[in-house]
Design a protein around this nucleic acid. Structure first.
Length: 871
RNA sequence: GCCGGGAUGGCGGAAUUGGCAGACGCGUUGGACUUAGGAUCCAAUGCCCAAAAGGCGUGCAGGUUCAAAUCCUGUUCCCGGCACCA
């Protein structure tokens, strides 16, 4: 930018140089409107009560890391364009923003810079908010939510107590994921390939700890079922959630340990989806961590060592991530279990491919009818017994032995006692019922989804509002004592458990039940608790008596939730499953009327540069500040919408931003140099009176409005919207932008070759400002003012198109001979097939291509093409 | 292994219902204006051929069709998700 100004000043005005005041100066324009928008805090405010229809558009709130990255800009550019479009279409729009501001980075930064987490976080928020404002995103800041402030997190605590009272929050000792870098426990959802979601290089350890859990599994069935009622969500996200919930129907079957001393502890329960194959079970396989294994190896060091090896192999397999490649190993315990269906004794093995955290941690092994069991049995020479035969269509056909393993469910039972001859599916039902009747099992459903562990051994989070009283045990803090304030000036060095446990003033409390001394819970909540319900808080952000007012949330959420939610697909499981759970819980509490938080979800694509995700280590990070400084906020955000459609991966190219800046600069000059007042004699609905040149401009104008409007309503391909606007300018500005003499507005409209009515010109200019408003709000506002428009652009009505004016009168039709392009004809848009045929056959180029050939057939697609088939 | 998404000029990408492949932008080349141009404007720009005519061309190999980037079969590669899930 600086070089350009320098050189422009040298221009004398007689040549094609653009005058300084005529030039698009993004910094000047954006600075001017930035100041104005600062003055008017109610500009983007949603109306609490309105006769207009509500529209809630939301982008996922950011973590205040200190600076926006391009992914944020892209996310917010999409949301802001939509919000502005909806405003202009007369909706009462809620478009808020907030900060997911608890979490580990603040603590790490605190240790590094010796700055308290609160100070570091609030400073980052200030900086990022300034960036957002500089980019011109229109948020209702009066509803800003900052999750690390007591005004917000007290309601986390309030919800936690409600969950506890309903039995949905509970404490349990279990094996949990521990990230040694975070020095805290992680939820299952936060472990990716055995690694921490924040530290890709760090393997998660398993630790036996007592933790708080939320009973999300109570809602597993509904969370799964309602995915079918979310047609506004990407199929990809719904599939991911389905996989994550991992529903599996099957049967629990109790095997008895043969020769057990104590019959009470001698049951081994297996889970199977194929109980119909149980007569083919020739061994039991236990997970190496199975409690029975510990007992069986108690006095057998050799076996113990083998089991330890299996555990190590399993852990390694999980760490590597390429589990399919890991070889199956097992060890025979030498003990037997009794199959309750036939009384048969089967050997008990321990195997490295059995997972303790799925099903019961024990399986029956049916080598003939399961891929893995088959491999295992081959390796260890365990009997392979066929109990299912394939169904044959023709009963006369001889039954052939299937190739093993035969795993499909299309078959009939053999060698299965009283169940022989049954069809597999019927057998599963009958055999489950049999087990239940005889008290050794039942049909059941298991889920991969586990309860949500929310305890974190960290400082910068919501204190869990629980107390431990010697007399009364676990007691919730009374509501009147909320919030439990997170103390400041805490030593947060990473060693030695929860930092809060080292603050006696915090730990020592009074039991609300007995008034005696009690110890406070010193773990804090997973930050995903904060983001599970934050979007309800926006509807009533300052409420100090409740998380939000029922009616206000009811107005904005309606029956179906947030109208449009936009964010990265990386939250497909984590945030989006937790917040669905929270919504269902709040509904059951009677706080809200909707079953789901989000009606329409949009997941935008990643931004990459030079073929890789932007990262500091690769040095391919593009800073939004840098772009804003070089090209302006409008160009930066508009480029993120122009480069590709918003759902796809975006390959960043600085030159592309420059291209957008060039386009905006052309728009600016097109209007700046030609500001005209309305022509009173101009009537838009008179295409017949226009010359061809003007008619082309008018047609393009209406076509462009249609394209942009349709895209907002439908497929959101803003890249093609923007290119349509570019085409409009190319058409309307063709004679103007290249003409030096036209630069003097006092001489009137007409330049050589330029002959369109002032009224049409004015209409194009006005429409350009309106169409650009969602994408480049700063410039659009400037243009609006330049055009002398009164009233805010934000709520100016979105332009309407006239289909009759958008229509082509005459079109060029390709003529093919045997499918190859041989000529073109010009016909009326509504030309009959006969006219098209005659014109096509009469075309000179077509004629020469037809010479000496015999016309077999002429295919005519009205208004599209003619294809002449010859021989 | 399973489930998604993708592969189109030098680059990012268009082509909405099977109907002119390459819109729009970038880059490049030439020109205009200029003391100058990294500003602006104009023009050209898929590949082959000196040009024209023509031919070729949407990852690859086939197929259906008057007509295929688009539909079908097979196949390769890339990206994302899930994965010893019993």
């Amino acid at each position: 930018m600086p070089q350009e100004e320098k050189t422009t000043v040298a221009g004398d005005g007689q040549n094609h140089d653009v005058h300084n005041e005529d030039r698009y100066d993004a910094q000047r324009i954006e600075g001017k409107w930035f100041e104005r928008w600062q003055q008017d805090s109610s500009l983007y405010a949603a109306e609490p009560h309105s006769t207009r229809q509500k529209y809630y558009v939301l982008e996922m709130l950011p973590y205040p890391s200190g600076a926006l990255h391009m992914g944020h800009v892209r996310n917010y550019a999409i949301g802001d364009a939509l919000a502005r479009y909806m405003w202009m279409n007369g909706y009462n729009v809620l478009h808020p923003m907030g900060w997911d501001s608890f979490g580990l980075p603040a603590e790490n930064a605190a240790i590094q810079n010796n700055t308290p987490p609160r100070e570091w976080t609030l400073r980052n928020i200030t900086a990022m908010k300034a960036q957002m404002k500089r980019l011109g995103f229109g948020y209702d800041w009066s509803r800003e939510v900052t999750t690390c402030l007591p005004e917000y997190y007290r309601w986390n605590q309030w919800f936690f107590i409600k969950l506890f009272e309903k039995g949905l929050a509970y404490r349990k000792k279990s094996r949990v994921n521990w990230c040694p870098k975070c020095c805290t426990v992680l939820a299952n959802e936060q472990v990716v390939n055995g690694r921490c979601w924040r530290h890709e290089d760090t393997l998660v350890e398993q630790r036996e700890l007592e933790q708080w859990f939320l009973r999300i599994t109570n809602y597993a069935e509904e969370l799964l079922r309602d995915l079918d009622r979310l047609p506004g969500w990407p199929e990809k996200v719904r599939t991911m959630q389905r996989n994550w919930i991992g529903r599996s129907e099957g049967t629990l079957v109790d095997f008895k340990l043969d020769g057990a001393a104590d019959p009470a502890t001698s049951t081994i329960t297996v889970f199977t989806t194929r109980v119909d194959t149980i007569f083919g079970a020739t061994s039991l396989q236990l997970a190496p961590q199975h409690p029975l294994v510990a007992r069986l190896t108690k006095n057998n060091d050799l076996l113990r060592a083998e089991v330890e090896r299996l555990i190590a192999e399993q852990r390694k397999a999980r760490e590597v991530g390429d589990i399919g490649e890991i070889e199956k190993h097992g060890v025979n315990t030498g003990r037997y279990a009794v199959n309750p269906y036939n009384g048969e004794r089967v050997p008990i093995w321990v195997a490295n491919y059995i997972l303790m955290d799925y099903g019961t941690g024990a399986i029956m092994s049916v080598p003939a009818h399961d891929e893995r069991d088959y491999d295992f049995a081959k390796k260890y020479k365990i009997e392979i017994r066929l109990v299912i035969l394939p169904k044959v269509d023709d009963p006369e056909e001889t039954v052939v032995e299937p190739r093993l393993p035969f795993t499909t469910i299309q078959g009939n039972l053999v060698n299965s006692g009283p169940f022989s001859g049954m069809d597999c599916e019927a057998a599963i039902r009958a055999m489950s019922a049999h087990a239940e009747k005889n008290g050794f099992g039942k049909a059941t459903v298991t889920y991969r989804l586990k309860d949500w562990g929310i305890s974190r051994q960290r400082y910068w989070g919501t204190p869990i509002p629980m107390l431990y009283c010697e007399k009364d045990g676990i007691v919730a803090v009374s509501e009147k004592d909320l919030p439990v304030i997170l103390p400041e000036n805490v030593d947060i060095t990473l060693t030695g458990g929860s930092p809060l446990s080292r603050v006696p003033e915090f730990v020592n409390a009074t039991c609300p039940k007995c008034g005696g001394p009690a110890r406070r819970e010193t773990d804090t909540m997973d930050t995903f608790v904060d983001s599970s319900w934050y979007f309800y808080r926006y509807t009533d952000a300052c409420n100090d008596r409740a998380p939000f007012d029922r009616e206000k949330a009811g107005y904005w959420f309606g029956d179906r939730g947030i109208d449009q939610y936009i964010g990265g697909v990386e939250h497909a499981i984590l945030h989006l499953i937790y917040s669905r759970f929270w919504t269902k819980f709040m509904r059951d509490m009677g706080l809200i009327g909707n079953d789901e938080p989000v009606e329409h979800l949009f997941t935008q694509g990643m931004i990459i540069k030079s073929g890789a995700k932007m990262s500091k280590s690769l040095g391919n990070v593009v800073s939004p500040d840098d772009m804003v400084e070089r090209y302006g906020g409008d160009s930066t955000r508009m480029y993120t919408l122009f480069a590709t459609s918003p759902d796809r991966e975006l390959d960043w190219q600085d030159e592309g931003v420059e291209g957008i800046q060039r386009f905006l600069s052309r728009v600016y000059r097109f209007i700046k140099q030609n500001v005209k007042t309305e022509d009173p004699g101009w009537h838009a609905s008179s295409p017949a009176k226009l010359n061809e040149q003007a008619r082309r401009v008018q047609r393009k104008l209406h076509q462009t409005i249609k394209r942009v409007t349709d895209d907002f309503q439908g497929r959101w391909h803003f890249n093609t919207c923007i290119s349509a606007i570019m085409e409009l300018l190319n058409e309307a500005g063709r004679w103007v932008l290249g003409s030096p003499s036209f630069r003097n507005p006092a001489t009137g409209v007409v330049v050589e070759g330029y002959d369109i009515p002032i009224g049409l010109l004015a209409e194009v200019q006005r429409t350009l400002a309106l169409l650009l408003a969602p994408f480049a709000p700063y410039l659009a506002h400037e243009l609006w003012e330049m055009l002398g428009e009164k009233g805010g652009l934000l709520r100016a009505p979105w332009p309407k198109y006239d289909p009759a004016l958008a229509k082509e009168e005459e079109i060029e039709i390709p003529v093919q001979v045997n499918g190859k392009l041989r000529g073109r004809i010009l016909v009326a848009a509504d030309a009959s097939e006969n006219v098209m045929r005659e014109n096509a056959l009469a075309d000179a180029k077509v004629q020469s291509a037809l010479a000496g050939k015999q016309v077999m057939k002429v295919i005519i697609v009205p208004a599209k093409l003619v294809n002449i088939v010859v021989r």
